[in-house]
Design a protein around this nucleic acid. Structure first.
Lengths: 210, 210
DNA sequence: ACATGTGAAGCGCTTCACAGCG
DNA sequence: CGCTGTGAAGCGCTTCACATGT
């Protein structure tokens, strides 16, 4: 049955997809229990999550691995092609440009931009780094819908505005700052040190108890 | 009043901290409304979150910026020193080793390790890359409590086991795979493409509606 | 027999609304 | 008066438990 997919479920679908891809090529079927163990969650949660995508499990048997992979990809829009531009070609920008996991999921890097003239013209993963001034026309001409910000924190807000004006729909911000979202643009943030701080909280707490 | 801090609150504390650090140096006071706007959340949520740390807001006035920063840092354990080792010196490993945000929060990189002999001996941010064989002794001798995995997916599980045996308490996994947590070790995962897939879901959905 | 799909109960987080206090 | 701190209500997610289907 088709109901709205809860946001937490959307966030777990990539995890299930990753688990399915880690199964041996010979395995054609998987149960909610097995998938739950792999993903580190409760089996009932797996079944409920998957039920939002439709009912294609087989009672007494489980789910067809290939079909399930496809359904998740469709639901996440990974069967579409998403042209992506990356702004900020430091180590992180380069890591993302080279990251194989993007291409496999329909995300294709169509432009790399940097404000630093010494970086412009250098080559990363087959792409030539372009100056920031060319961002607007490149986004328009290449139909980029997603912008990834990997600049220093100071530059991030300006880059976000520029991306919005150029016409991207969504921004993924890796810069360690909270962006004011330009109107009409969906912004998500990934802070590399947030998770480390969460770990720190629990370590700290464990020590305080001991 | 001291009650257990909800997990969602723990995850938001780093965001508040980032917002506080972005305030101008002259601003000594901040209201829950202002902080909420910066962080992009509801003001009541800010007040409730902060109330778990104690009651040090001033009614009619707001919170003292400096004191609030300190309290959040204490709660997250950022006033302690956390020796960290990074395994996997690709672009992502280098980006993390160079990342200023770590040092400011008490995370000090005390070792870089890689299986690739051509990388061993090279220098990153003042640290010399060491071979994987030296991981165990290094973790023990330097008292590392946190391990960061930035290897390819295939190597991640073995590295996690090695880190556990060597004696780390927590692992932050950037490899695109779901780890089976070694016993006694807290594992958190960061998947660089998960957030991109979440964006894709909403873009995809928006298009389907239009 | 066995594993899915799902009402319903349980639980935790969010938000409201206002009492409390400077 | 203004803003914090917090009961209480509201909402959504998680988990249980079992009916359902093969």
């Amino acid at each position: 049955m088709k109901r709205p997919v809860p946001t937490v479920t959307v966030q777990r679908l990539p995890v299930y997809l990753q688990c399915l891809e880690s199964l041996s090529a010979g395995q054609s079927n998987v149960s909610s229990d097995e998938l739950a163990t792999l993903a580190g969650v409760n089996p009932a949660k797996v079944r409920k999550d998957l039920s939002y995508l439709g009912t294609f499990g087989v009672r007494g048997v489980g789910y067809d691995v290939e079909q399930l992979r496809f359904q998740i990809r469709v639901e996440l829009g990974l069967e579409s092609d998403w042209p992506v531009v990356i702004v900020g070609v430091g180590n992180l920008g380069r890591a993302l440009a080279n990251y194989a996991g993007f291409g496999e999921r329909g995300f294709h890097v169509v432009g790399l931009f940097d404000a630093d003239p010494t970086k412009v013209g250098t080559s990363v993963d087959g792409l030539v780094v372009e100056p920031l001034e060319d961002l607007h026309d490149a986004v328009r001409d290449r139909g980029a819908t997603i912008g990834i910000i990997t600049t220093p924190a100071e530059a991030a807000q300006d880059v976000a505005e520029a991306l919005a004006v150029a016409g991207v729909d969504s921004i993924l911000n890796f810069a360690p700052t909270v962006l004011k979202p330009p109107s009409g643009v969906e912004v998500r943030r990934v802070d590399l040190s947030t998770e480390l701080q969460v770990l720190s909280f629990y370590l700290h707490r464990r020590r305080a108890e001991a």
